[in-house]
Design a protein around this nucleic acid. Structure first.
Lengths: 253, 253
DNA sequence: CCAGCTGGTTGCATATTGCGCAACGACCGT
DNA sequence: ACGGTCGTTGCGCAATATGCAACCAGCTGG
């Protein structure tokens, strides 16, 4: 809709990967050097990018400002922090905090696991709902009509052999999740990792976010993972209390 | 230079303050609603903003995605470069950037002083923590337990008449450093040189590195050196901002 | 010391792109 | 049902962003 803006935003995501030179950028987004230069100058004036020497450009400090302010809006992050940090340091496993947004899951916070297995996730990153434990929790929290609507709209990209691939199966899974109060991702997103997730509720029992625990399969088998559910749920409930939840929700809805 | 991009970036900083509606934005940046709408749509497509209901717009997840992605490969060396280079060229004194590694200090970057006094240091070189200003800053940034652990493990090699020679004195010195936010090396490493150092912080206020200024005693007396502390701290803070530091660290350590 | 290369910068002419306008429509409260 | 408040859309105009080509500055190798 706005070409120049669009290009500028593409430039930003290119620079996020790595610092680049003018014509590297020009080549990658297929526009003239001079065009890129002008965009970069405007971005630079607003501190969205900064120059390194004369040739390299990288992201600037304005991003940090904005990101910080953007995160402040998301209160769940703060109110859940103690409970999740405690769970993380006690179990040593990777914890994610995620919210639902436009048919996808957004990771809002991450507590790195103590074992050295690196996970391909990052605060701010988005992921599909149909193959993540957090996605299931978040969608399962919605009214049945909305669930169906979302189930129909997904593209069910296949990630592993266990990935759910159609609306019917997804809806059935959601029913289970709503009933049990937690969700499982049995290596449906990444082959070597399985996860469990539980909802974090605010005032009136509305689900604000989902907390998950991700563990490499080599480290813990499926039964071992399930054994951790009570701990995760306890931490999520604790986080809920600090997010305005008033104890017993008459109905999970 | 690029009008639409410029306006879009202004919109982002407006949204950073608070969520706003379409014509609130239109009024504030003094352009037509429809124009703002188009910009918002492109921003939304890239997840730079997100809608809340139909009326309110707020910052989106791409912002903290980019910021986090940028932080991953942003080494202190690069992000501190402008601030330190500026300090170096303005004062003409030797600046070091150092990190902590395995009980020692590693010089990561060096900005040569304008006077031709040779200093025994080099990028990549290691130095003890007990007799350098950077070492004190880096260890002082750690939790008390870790400080004590390190203090016990050092060998306190004597370099000059002023060198600290035992754990108790070192720990006392660290307390001072943590309290004041800067460290001093009063000719404790080399007889004819004294230094000051300050921490450079990244996201969450964690200390990533320390910046120091080293000056021959013949060139400037001790009081003159201390008078430079504010300048060094200012430069270090500037470097911190470009390293992801978000301003107020409620607790410095 | 120069020639050639790489990569950044500038001025200009063109038309694409983004702009304001005004009318429309969705929603809400009275 | 009616008026008001906002978000949304189509359109025609021209300002704006774009590509081009020529111009530099910094490096490298001969």
């Amino acid at each position: 809709m706005s070409q120049s803006l669009d290009r500028a935003l593409v430039i930003l995501s290119e620079l996020a990967k790595d610092a680049k030179t003018l014509d590297q950028l020009a080549e990658q987004i297929d526009v003239h050097k001079s065009t890129v230069l002008r965009l970069l100058r405007t971005l630079e004036a607003h501190h969205f990018v900064r120059r390194e020497g004369t040739r390299y450009y990288r992201l600037g400090s304005a991003l940090f400002d904005l990101a910080n302010q953007a995160l402040e809006d998301r209160d769940v992050r703060r109110s859940s922090q103690p409970a999740l940090a405690e769970l993380n340091s006690r179990t040593g496993h990777t914890i994610h905090l995620a919210t639902y947004e436009d048919g996808e899951v957004v990771y809002v916070d991450k507590y790195e696991g103590h074992h050295s297995v690196r996970m391909y996730s990052r605060v701010g990153k988005r992921a599909p709902v149909h193959c993540t434990a957090v996605g299931k929790v978040l969608v399962a929290a919605m009214a049945p009509a909305r669930r169906a609507e979302i189930a129909e709209s997904l593209d069910y990209q296949v990630r592993t052999g266990n990935t759910i691939t159609n609306p019917a199966d997804f809806l059935a899974e959601l029913d289970k999740v709503a009933k049990h109060g937690y969700a499982v991702d049995n290596a449906e997103h990444e082959d070597f990792i399985h996860c469990i997730a539980a909802p974090i509720r605010g005032a009136d029992g509305v689900v604000l976010a989902a907390a998950s625990m991700s563990i490499p399969k080599i480290l813990l088998d499926f039964d071992g993972l399930l054994a951790l559910v009570p701990e995760l749920v306890a931490a999520a409930d604790d986080a809920s209390v600090h997010s305005g939840w008033t104890g017993n929700t008459e109905r999970g809805q």
